[in-house]
Amino acid sequence: MIGIIGIAVIFIMVFGGYVLAGGKLGIIMKALPFEMIMIGGAAVGAFLLSNDGASVKQALKDVGKVFKGPQWKPADYRDLLCLLFELIRIARVNPVGLEEHIENPEESSVFARYQKIKHDHEAIELICDTLRAASMNYDDPHQVEEVLDKRVDKAQTHALHSSHALQSMADALPALGIVAAVLGVIKTMGSIDQPPEILGKMIGGALVGTFLGVFLAYGIVGPFATRVKAVVEEDAHFYNLIREVLVANLHNHPANMCIEVGRQNTPHNVRPSFTDLEEALRALKQEAA
């Protein structure tokens, strides 16, 4: 919602201020379709040229993050801590029984209670691979933490590609606007014998290209890239939480302490309160009993 409000504010302030200052939208509206074809078309072409098909699809999908915001909400962090608590408890009480959950999470009764997390392949693979490695005695906390750091960083770098692609487009738009403006000037020079009032409109139309390139770069595409990056970085806390809890588990801390380590390393705006988490864990213990 806030993304839509931001776009509305941009358009109202820019064009509203222009009209209030005595500007006429007629020249802009007449030149806009042609300038948009040149600038927008060239920007899209450059975007396709500099990215592969998978990256293009991912970037188009990630544009929705501008309006939807982060994937993981505070309730999801609480659910993740509950899921990890259950798995750690099972691993310590019945290591053999853990295998049915980490080898086939789609059929696991534990994962089934957390459907949103279950459908995130990166989170599930991160949890299951780490617990599986621990069951095979790859349980040195420092080595595992290093592996998880690299894995989380690699996933985040891949997720940030959309933001970089959009930012590259934003960087190119002002120059493409100049290209369109120069073409407009060339057109104007070809009609130099026309009266001043006609030449004035033609020059004004040419300058729309420069305006459009800068406006799209700094008013639309650039902020989109920044917002996508911010959302990706915020969602990365979810996977960092998995790392914190599983590494604490390898240090053989009590299960409750492992979960508390994860809770305290969660950003404040999505961190479940101690009381809420304690009630959720108590309910799990009562259910297991």
Rank of each mutant, 00 (worst) to 15 (best):
F11I: 13
I12V: 15
Y18C: 07
A21K: 14
K24N: 13
I27F: 04
E35T: 13
G40I: 00
L48K: 06
L49E: 08
K57L: 12
K57Q: 11
D62W: 08
G64L: 10
V66S: 08
K68R: 14
G69Q: 08
Q71C: 07
D76V: 05
D76M: 11
Y77V: 04
R78E: 14
N94C: 09
P95E: 05
P95R: 06
V96Y: 09
H101W: 01
N104G: 06
S109V: 12
R113M: 12
Y114R: 00
H119L: 10
A123Y: 01
I127Y: 00
T130I: 02
R132G: 01
P141M: 03
E145T: 00
L148D: 00
L148A: 00
K150S: 14
R151P: 00
Q156L: 12
A159I: 02
H164W: 09
A172C: 03
P174C: 04
A181R: 01
L183T: 10
Q194C: 05
P196G: 07
G200P: 02
F215S: 04
F215Q: 03
D235Y: 06
Y239M: 04
Y239G: 01
N249G: 06
A255P: 00
M257Y: 11
C258Y: 04
N265T: 07
L281S: 07
A283D: 12
